[in-house]
Amino acid sequence: MINYPNIDPVALSLGPIKIHWYGVMYLIGFIGGWWLGRIRAQRPLSGWKPEQIDDLLFYCALGVVLGGRLGYVFFYGFDYLITNPGSIFKVWQGGMSFHGGLLGVLIAMGIYARKTGRSFFQVTDFIAPLIPVGLGAGRMGNFINGELWGKATDLPWGMIFHDPRAGDIPRHPSQLYEFALEGVVFFLILWFFSNRNRPPMAVSGLFLICYGLFRFAIEFVRVPDPQLGYLTLGWVTMGQILSLPMIIAGIGFLGWAYWKR
């Protein structure tokens, strides 16, 4: 078993101003996505100019932050929000929903596509391979915060988090599993898949399939949010319920893309 390193969630203190590692991870995700976006835009026949990535990042950031926070408080903490309305602004405490962030980004990309005269899937196919960088950074932020740990395990890499809520028992470091799958593996799949000319919707479809499958699988070893617990059958979580439509939609998009071609 391994002891959790008890990392200070505050990266830097400047008087009353505290810069949290969770926020730093989001910044890394945005900068990484911007850099990779400019690389993609420089490819022959990409249809994009590197300077257009700046505006694209702005729209993405708004979608991620607003959608992610609103998604969390409505999907996972609505009862708490009713009694503590101010909690919606406390993003430094964690509490960001990927599924809410995805909806926010889709809305933002729809607005961006309309503004720039592109089709919706031209935009989503372009940004899909950039998103795993932010996902991986966000999961590392969860690990630094010591949150979203997994179920008890007797595997050699089980980690003791020394948190009263987790108890002094080895648990799956599910944040690191998600970093590996949603960050590293997910990025490699989408990056190399999108390196070749693909029909519209194909990259977006593969994005939905991969994330949905990875998240659905990780939920089996991750402790569900305590305010929700298991929703049915003693093992189904909110994360799995929200991921299932992604898998179905992704299969539909991918199949339709190649059938049309």
Results as ranks from 00 to 15, higher is better:
Tyr230Ile: 03
Asp225Trp: 14
Glu147Arg: 08
Leu130Tyr: 02
Tyr4Cys: 03
Phe193Met: 08
Ala41Asp: 06
Ala108Met: 09
Leu188Met: 05
Leu188Ile: 13
Ile17Phe: 15
Ile31Glu: 12
Phe193Leu: 14
Gln227Lys: 10
Ile53Asp: 10
Thr83Trp: 12
Asp225Glu: 15
Phe143Tyr: 14
Ala113Asn: 08
Trp149Ile: 06
Ser194Cys: 01
Ala166Met: 09
Gly67Phe: 06
Phe120Gly: 01
Ala249Phe: 12
Phe186Lys: 10
Gly183Glu: 03
Leu57Phe: 13
Pro85Asp: 11
Gly23Phe: 08
Phe143Gln: 02
Ile88Thr: 03
Gly138Asn: 04
Gly141Cys: 03
Gly15Met: 00
His172Gly: 01
Phe143Cys: 07
Leu106Lys: 05
Phe121His: 14
Thr124Ile: 06
Leu45Cys: 11
Leu188Ser: 03
Gly134Cys: 04
Pro132Val: 06
Arg139Tyr: 01
Asn145Gly: 01
Arg198Phe: 07
Pro164Thr: 05
Gly67Ile: 12
Pro44Lys: 11
Asp125Gln: 08
Thr153Ser: 13
Gln227Asn: 15
Ser174Pro: 02
Pro156Glu: 09
Met140Lys: 08
Gly158Ala: 09
Leu56Arg: 04
Phe58Ala: 06
Leu206Trp: 02
Ala61Gly: 09
Ile2Asp: 09
Ile53Asn: 06
Ala11Pro: 05
Phe78Leu: 13
Ile88Asp: 07
Leu242Arg: 10
Ala108Leu: 11
Leu103His: 02
Leu12Phe: 07
Gly67Lys: 04
Tyr22Gln: 02
Phe161Thr: 00
Ile82Tyr: 09
Pro170Gly: 01
Leu148Gln: 00
Cys60Phe: 08
Ile251Leu: 15
Val223Ile: 13
Phe253Gln: 00
Glu219Ala: 13
Val223Trp: 09
Glu178Phe: 10
Leu36Ala: 01
Leu27Cys: 12
Phe78Ser: 10
Gly86Lys: 08
Ile17His: 10
Ser87Lys: 15
Gln52Gly: 02
Tyr211Met: 11
Met159Phe: 00
Leu231Asn: 00
Gly77Ser: 15
Val133Met: 10
Ser204Gly: 11
Gln42Trp: 04
Phe30Ala: 06
Gln175Phe: 02
Gly15Asp: 06
Arg222Cys: 07
Ile131Trp: 02
Tyr230Leu: 05
Gly255Ala: 12
His20Ala: 04
Gln240Lys: 05
Asn84Pro: 03
Tyr211Phe: 15
Trp35Pro: 01
Val123Gly: 02
Phe220Ser: 11
Pro50Ile: 06
Leu148Trp: 13
Pro164Val: 07
Gly250Asp: 00
Trp35Asn: 07
Tyr211Trp: 05
Ala249Val: 12
Val24Gln: 11
Glu178Ile: 03
Ala41Gly: 05
Met109Tyr: 08
Val184Asn: 05
Gly47Gln: 00
Met201Ala: 07
Gly234Val: 09
Phe126Leu: 00
Ile88Trp: 01
Ala249Asn: 08
Phe143Ala: 01
Val184Glu: 05
Tyr26Lys: 08
Trp48Asn: 02
Leu213Lys: 04
Arg222Ser: 01
Ile169His: 05
Phe187Glu: 12
Leu181Glu: 13
Glu147Gln: 10
Leu155Tyr: 08
Gly101Ser: 10
Phe74Ile: 13
Ile88Phe: 08
Asp163Trp: 09
